[in-house]
């Protein structure tokens, strides 16, 4: 439970994305030379959600586990209005997976806390970050909600708007909770924010070695080009088309919901 009367604090883990064409080199490594690393769109959405709490006076702490080009990613997050940035450096040197990233962020949470919420992106490259943040919730034993589009302080809890197939819900959830953003217009950095992020705000740098206390539980075997689709056009009749679509779970079985 956060200290009463203290300023609300929110941890916002953010991810990067490549801005430009990424190619695979002959040696199986990804060629990112000259490719800018930017804040992912989903992270900008998470910041848009977190800024709703900032409007109520919350302090936003962004954390990024750097795998190269991370400072610019973090400065971009700061430009969106975050108050403080934590850059976990050196993660690219060790093998990591979503579990180790979750452990690293959990350590940041414990050492820099207390926090009233963790607000993060719900997707990222390889769809990995949803898993990372859910794993974080699992490690910290916190409630975890996915698809949040609005958040506000509500007494000792948080009031959130939550999107699901069943509709939009207003919920009251405890503090702290892990909230993964839903479909929300991403935040846009202002010129003031861009200036301050690069010339005023500092970044707290921590070594990944000190924070990564777990070995990777998945092991990367190789990176390869996506094979060109060899599938040729199949000429079919209507009934066959329907069977094909059903077999690929693209349309409903008879009587079922799609």
């Amino acid at each position: 439970m956060p200290p009463s009367g203290a300023r609300l604090r929110v941890l916002v883990p953010v991810t990067g994305a490549f801005h430009g064409k990424v190619r695979l080199k002959r040696n199986g490594l990804v060629d990112t030379e000259g490719v800018e690393r930017i804040l992912s769109r989903e992270s900008a959405q998470a910041l848009a959600l977190a800024k709703q709490l900032a409007a109520e006076g919350a302090e936003l702490v962004v954390v990024h586990v750097d795998k190269g080009g991370g400072e610019e990613v973090l400065r971009e997050a700061l430009a969106h209005g975050a108050d403080q940035g934590v850059l976990v450096e050196g993660a690219e040197k060790s093998e990591s997976d979503a579990s180790t990233r979750a452990t690293t962020i959990a350590e940041v949470y414990k050492q820099m806390g207390p926090f009233d919420a963790v607000i993060g992106p719900a997707r990222s490259e390889f769809a990995g970050f949803t898993g990372t943040l859910a794993a974080l919730a699992g490690q910290l034993e916190l409630p975890c909600l996915v698809g949040v589009s609005r958040v506000a302080v509500d007494g000792v809890g948080l009031r959130i708007a939550y999107q699901s197939l069943f509709g939009d819900y207003d919920l009251r959830v405890p503090r702290p909770s892990v909230l993964l953003v839903g479909d929300l217009e991403p935040s846009h950095p202002t010129a003031w924010g861009i200036h301050d992020a690069h010339r005023v705000k500092g970044i707290l740098r921590v070594k990944a070695d000190n924070y990564t206390v777990q070995k990777a539980l998945t092991k990367r075997q190789r990176i390869e080009n996506v094979p060109q689709e060899s599938r040729s056009l199949e000429s079919v009749d209507g009934a066959t088309l329907v069977r094909r679509l059903r077999s690929r779970s693209l349309i409903a079985e008879k009587g079922g919901s799609p």
Partner: peptide, 24 residues
């Protein structure tokens, strides 16, 4: 099967068991 919730359930459960997971 993958969805935002599917990914989250997978990761949460795996992490409580202390094992790895892959999403998507």
């Amino acid at each position: 099967f993958q969805s935002r919730t599917g990914d989250a359930v997978t990761a949460y459960a795996a992490n409580r068991l202390g094992v790895g997971f892959a999403t998507g």
